[in-house]
Nucleic acid binder design. Structure first.
Lengths: 346, 346
DNA sequence: TTGTAAGCGTTATCAT
DNA sequence: ATGATAACGCTTACAA
């Protein structure tokens, strides 16, 4: 693999045949006699021959590698997605090149440039918070690069996508709080420019409305960097807690926001849920860890990764461009804490 | 990048020069006149030329990509390490191909085969729990593949490594419990075949001894899959809790074990730390989340990733084999919970 | 200073 | 059924 590197030439030489014969034999071509095939295969094994994927790529104009862009790897939700992606990629003989946007538009552009210069066969991407202009992706897509968007998507790009049913998740979370007696429910969400964010806030509002609770704009907070910067959340929570009419519960719209919010609440010495209840999207183990009564909305992250790469490989491997753009919607799951959320007492 | 793909040939044709001139001009060779250079560079820009890394790799016999093998991506400790690796790799123009062993020896072998067949320029690996025989790695290393081991290492391989000072971390954790009045301290660690595990247990034992507390083998538990399989931890905790003399505290030797242990303890309805105190290695945010008084040993994961890839690139880029095998040891940090661990009351 | 040509390892198109 | 040969895009002796 490093110093020697057996090639088909070596096999050809050893066997006194031509390289094309070797190549064909190894690819099990019909025009090679069984005996020769046998011979070649044996020799290849003996010499421990491994085809050079670089050379193959050069010839075949495909690299069997796919690019993935997420905001952060060290984020439970995304690392679980990557896990799903990797598992399928591995099985299908593709490799995965991961890069992070760190929620920066510029970095996202750089990543894309990098990945395409690496000639990936396809791209899986979840947009950065800062990304509002998606023309770079549109251009790539129109040039023929297969793309699948996941989680943070944009309707402007004509590519398949996999998303969570954010509305539903948020609705159920909020409803759960309402059914347990909470009335003054705050919401902390991501940047309002993010697709996921609005859907979640919409679900939250809908639940309130359906139960006849007025939506109070003061209770809705947006964190532009969605918790990547902790101080953002801290500030949001602090602002909520100095309102004349404090919230009695809070719905957090992402994994990071949930943990960040909890952290702040704990730091402020507030008791959960006596002083303030909390429910949110979460893929960490906090549900079982923090308090037995804590319920969460779990996003099917692994499944999202698997779906995304399946859609991508499908697109890559079927030559002709897909006409029907598929959009998969996965359902989040309301996971009740060990003893559920206790009904509000006051 | 996909359908058209501008090559140096196109530039050459457009300018009426040879491809070698173009190539040399782009690489800023001294033998090309400034005017020609200027011309070529402008033309390249105009046509939006991007060099084909595949072709370059084939020629230069290096891919500018490095392989990473970890047990699980969706593990906070490792995803933080990968974050560190990726950050440096990105800056230096390398790409990172990640694969997971899922703690399986066979899978690790497959990963290695895959990565080397992909002709990575170097390898970063943290051994799987099941790996006791490292001859596959030795062979690769001796063949000239630059390797750096991290976290779970093996002294049998003649390669640089980056590790945490596990002994120290475990010692300090245990000491912290002792100083707060705990005496019957259990330890839950990874497989006893793992380098990190023994060092941690050794630190734990040393602390007990230094404070005149007898080591009770009954209180030491090993989880072979280190928490990847939750039931392992559950069982370990359960076994501890049915002892005639129950532990009053537990030291957990890894991130997964810490969260898993907490989860079990919460499930059993035990109060922390009144009924049982806990301290352990952790890179998740639980310290601030669970209980304000919970202290943890934080491992410098990001730094570990950065160190590892730096050592690797150093090895890759300096042609001649390194004579001095460097072994970096990073210090873990004892992070006290908001109000520290309360002194045991009983 | 620039061009020609060989070569990296493979596959594919011709012949034979 | 097999062998020469060209080609993929790029780099680099070697010529000129």
């Amino acid at each position: 693999m490093k110093f020697e590197a057996v090639t088909i030439k070596d096999i050809a030489k050893a066997l006194g045949v031509s390289t094309s014969t070797v190549s064909r034999a190894l690819r099990d071509s019909y025009e090679i006699s069984p005996e020769t095939k046998q011979m070649v295969i044996e020799c290849a094994e003996r010499l421990n021959y491994r085809p050079n994927p670089i050379a193959q790529s050069l010839k075949e104009k495909r690299t069997r590698s796919i690019g993935v862009v997420v905001c952060e790897i060290a984020n439970n939700f995304f690392s679980q997605i990557i896990n799903g992606i990797e598992s399928i990629a591995y099985d299908k003989g593709y490799n995965v090149i991961i890069s992070q946007s760190h929620e920066s538009y510029e970095r996202e552009i750089m990543d894309l440039q990098y990945l395409t210069s690496r000639s990936v066969d396809g791209l899986l991407i979840s947009l950065s918070t800062e990304t509002s202009d998606v023309s770079h992706l549109k251009a790539l897509n129109e040039k023929g690069l297969p793309i699948v968007l996941f989680d943070r998507v944009s309707s402007e790009i004509n590519a398949p996508s996999v998303v969570i049913d954010n509305f539903k998740g948020a609705y159920e979370a909020t409803e759960h709080l309402i059914l347990n007696g909470y009335r003054r429910i705050a919401a902390i969400s991501n940047s309002e420019f993010l697709s996921i964010s609005n859907e979640r806030i919409a679900g939250y509002k809908q639940a309130l409305e359906n139960y006849g609770i007025a939506v109070d704009p003061q209770l809705i907070k947006h964190c532009f960097y969605g918790g990547m910067i902790y101080s953002e959340i801290e500030e949001a929570v602090n602002e909520l807690m100095i309102l004349k009419e404090k919230p009695d519960a809070v719905f957090t719209a992402s994994d990071k926001l949930t943990t960040g919010c909890l952290k702040t609440i704990k730091r402020r010495g507030l008791r959960v849920p006596e002083e303030i209840a909390i429910i949110g999207f979460s893929n960490t183990e906090i549900a079982e860890l923090i308090e037995p009564h804590l319920s969460v909305i779990r996003q099917p992250a692994l499944e999202m990764g698997q779906s995304a790469i399946q859609l991508l490989l499908q697109q890559i491997e079927s030559k002709r461009p897909i006409t029907q753009i598929e959009k998969r919607v996965l359902s989040p799951e309301l996971i009740l804490g060990a003893s559920s959320l206790p009904r509000k007492l006051s």
